[in-house]
């Protein structure tokens, strides 16, 4: 790219203010899909017990970046990552790290609710089972109940835990997916447009949930909705064409964007 120099000069450091607890720190992350580069030198810190929103026009690399954080891109043959991403100071791309282990700590919720074609109970029990976190029926029961409670789905499904998860409404399905992620007690939850397939009421419930979860988890969420970012997040990062353009407190970004592109995007001039 010819103008990469100018953009790199204005590259934000993305560091959280001194003293704030950094959960994930990424430095100079580049990613290629085959020949095509999709991320260019991303430096971004994700603070613990906060919600960080990733915004930007379609195709700018938000999902791609999010998937770097739990090495989901490993499942794509052509994807290649360079750079340094640390979870609690530990390089997650180090040889010694097993992505399986990593993903138990960094959970993920997807754009389209994707419950497994199993019962509600089995959906939630899936993670604890594969990781061997709980072995007795009683332990699993307990995890299922508390996870569903934390995902504020318990009241709605407590009488039909044996019914297939795919039979729930879209919003319920998405909360089931969140419960499924919570069930392995991750430290970080990554959410890729978790509400884009939902109606406003369901969206509202998920947003409430995110705000509750933030107390105990580090959350990164991709969203296309400015207002959602404003409602749920404390920090916002703006991506554009694979570059991290600007990052800061949500209030600052929305009221006083430094970069012209951020401004244009927020005021709805493109994207």
């Amino acid at each position: 790219m010819s103008d990469s120099g100018t953009i790199q000069m204005s590259r934000p450091t993305g560091r959280v203010p001194e003293g704030a607890p950094v959960k994930i720190a990424s430095r100079d992350v580049n990613l290629w899909y085959g020949e095509k580069q999709a991320l260019f030198g991303i430096d971004l810190d994700v603070p613990d017990n906060h919600v960080t929103a990733l915004i930007g026009p379609s195709g700018c690399g938000k999902s791609t970046f999010l998937r770097c954080l739990n090495r989901m891109n490993d499942t794509i043959d052509i994807a290649r990552v360079a750079g340094d991403i640390r979870l609690d100071g530990e390089d997650i791309y180090a040889k010694a790290i097993d992505p399986v282990q990593l993903r138990a700590r960094v959970g993920m919720v997807f754009q389209k609710p994707n419950p497994f074609p199993k019962s509600i109970y089995e959906n939630v029990a899936y993670g604890p089972r594969i990781h061997g976190i709980a072995t007795s029926k009683k332990q699993i029961d307990e995890i299922v109940v508390t996870s569903l409670q934390k995902a504020s789905l318990w009241e709605e499904v407590k009488d039909r835990l044996d019914e297939p998860g795919t039979g729930l409404s879209g919003g319920q399905q998405q909360r089931l997916c969140i419960a499924r992620a919570i069930a392995v007690s991750p430290e970080v939850i990554l959410m890729d447009e978790p509400c884009s397939a939902l109606d406003p009421i369901a969206t509202d419930r998920i947003e409430q949930l995110i705000l509750e979860l933030k107390e105990n988890y580090c959350i990164a969420i991709v969203t296309h909705s400015m207002s959602q970012a404003a409602r749920v997040s404390q920090r916002t990062a703006f991506f554009h064409l694979g570059y991290l353009v600007e990052v800061g407190d949500t209030a600052d970004i929305f009221t006083n964007p430094q970069d012209k592109r951020t401004q244009d995007y927020i005021t709805g001039r493109f994207g």
């Binding site: 097993d98 399986v100 282990q101 138990a104 700590r105 594969i130 990781h131 061997g132 976190i133 409670q149 934390k150 919570i182 392995v184 007690s185 430290e187 509750e212 979860l213 107390e215 105990n216 988890y217």
Partner: peptide
């Protein structure tokens, strides 16, 4: 509602770590 405590998380990640070899095999 409160989530898992740090000690709980450490316990869990130890369980996961212990299972990895078996699962990789």
């Amino acid at each position: 509602m409160s989530g898992p405590s740090d000690s709980e998380r450490i316990a869990i990640s130890e369980i996961v770590a212990r299972g990895i070899r078996r699962r990789r095999a």
